[in-house]
């Protein structure tokens, strides 16, 4: 899909290996598991919790030119919705090519309705979405 997904925690690569080998839920995981035991990268992205030494559930989408396009941070006790992550990733890729368009909340994939914000659309968003 043209993207590298890297999972990152403050565990070492040795613990990543042990976990991936022992947890059946991770049998099919193919992503490189990044080790950030110093918390350096986690701090850069503002997800390092100084009180615990752990990283919050943060997701960051970076474009091929190195620009941060998207971020989402959840507290420890809230899991992420992968469908929504994929929706945002697809939208970011699409919008990187179509700078004048906008993907509304119900946009899911290429081919779905987009908006072209102009003076004509002011007060007429319903019409733009539904007609």
């Amino acid at each position: 899909m043209g993207a590298e997904v890297i999972t990152v925690s403050t565990d070492t690569q040795f613990v990543h290996l042990a976990w991936q080998n022992s947890e059946k839920e991770l049998r099919d995981v193919k992503y490189p598991m990044g080790a950030d035991p110093t918390g350096k990268l986690s701090r850069q992205f503002g997800v390092y919790d100084e009180n615990t030494g752990l990283a919050l559930r943060g997701t960051f989408i970076i474009s091929p030119d190195g620009t941060l396009f998207n971020s989402e941070v959840n507290f420890y006790n809230l899991g992420r919705n992968i469908d929504e992550l994929m929706r945002k990733f697809k939208a970011n890729m699409y919008l990187a090519r179509k700078a004048t368009e906008a993907c509304p909340s119900k946009w899911k994939d290429e081919g779905d309705k987009t908006l072209e914000p102009t003076a004509k659309m002011v007060g007429k968003v319903w019409e733009a979405l539904n007609e």
């Binding site: 590298e4 890297i6 970076i62 970011n92 890729m93």
Partner: peptide
């Protein structure tokens, strides 16, 4: 390296293994 390959990067932080 990922930028050189023209790839998007998704960083997925989580608190702890296990």
């Amino acid at each position: 390296e990922l930028k050189n390959q023209g790839k998007w990067t998704i960083l997925f932080f989580y608190p702890a293994d296990f």
